[in-house]
């Protein structure tokens, strides 16, 4: 059975000042599936995912037209509470950026921001999130140590745990493995496989094998436009556009 559309992007355009970075994009993101976004550097993948939790609002001079429906509600409507939106749509960045505080406080940051003060509840959320991010076994005995002392791969899983702690429905990953070695990358990929059962996932990646391994759907961006979108199998085995084929076979010039 086909799962429902969690996110529907309609005629999305975005300008940085005068420069158009996204052009007339339309796509549907299925609930509890992994959607990979690929494309050459500078084609607008990061810009696109930042639209989904309105992080672009924080950049000066950004102008957006079109709409993005999350559960059929346009997130760019005037009455939308951006804080509540970002709670529902979490983000994991390219480089892990733990806060300079303990592992526990890092994970508890989001819940605390959203008003949870009770110690036991916090402890429970921290444990659940770390388990969810496959980091619990490695850090359960040292939650009080500074998160900056973790390895890069552990830091990235910490950041994933941190976004899980807010209990999002959608998680956006912007090249989450680009700063990691193959083993740490493998762990994150396994993790994404697990997370897929509960969350809707969008992942930007430059690694074709990774896109093929982790995703159900793949979108290929070129110069700010979604050129091709479909089941990952179809995209990789029989791309309809020549540009897509050239890109995934590495012939892109």
């Amino acid at each position: 059975m086909d799962s429902k559309n969690k996110i529907e992007v309609k005629d999305l355009n975005l300008w940085y000042a005068d420069k158009q970075a996204l052009k007339d994009n339309n796509l549907h993101i299925k609930e509890r599936k992994v959607t990979a976004l690929i494309g050459p550097s500078g084609c607008g993948k990061s810009t696109f995912v930042r639209c989904i939790n309105r992080m672009n609002d924080l950049i000066d001079g950004v102008r957006i037209t079109g709409s993005i429906l999350l559960d059929n509600k346009n997130i760019y409507d005037k009455d939308v509470d951006v804080v509540a939106l970002r709670k529902r749509v979490g983000m994991v960045f390219q480089r892990p950026n733990p806060f300079p505080m303990s592992i526990f406080d890092n994970i508890a940051y989001g819940p605390r921001i959203h008003g949870i003060k009770d110690k036991d509840s916090l402890r429970k959320i921290v444990e659940e999130s770390l388990v969810g991010a496959a980091l619990w076994d490695e850090v359960s005995d040292r939650l009080g140590t500074n998160a900056l002392d973790l390895s890069g791969g552990q830091q990235q899983r910490l950041c994933i745990a941190r976004s899980l702690a807010v209990k999002p429905e959608v998680i956006l990953f912007d090249e989450p493995c680009s700063a990691l070695d193959p083993i740490a990358t493998g762990k994150i990929e396994d993790l994404i496989h697990e997370l897929r059962k509960k969350y809707t996932i969008v992942i930007v990646t430059h690694n074709m094998q990774q896109a093929a391994r982790v995703s159900d759907f793949t979108g290929f961006f070129l110069l700010g436009k979604l050129l091709e979108f479909g089941k990952t199998r179809d995209i990789f085995e029989n791309p309809k556009k020549k540009e897509t084929e050239d890109y995934i076979t590495g012939r892109f010039g």
Partner: peptide, 15 residues
Amino acid sequence: VPYAERMESFGMGAS
């Protein structure tokens, strides 16, 4: 204070 830390915080819905 790194810009990225602010972004992470905003990304979790902090004001």
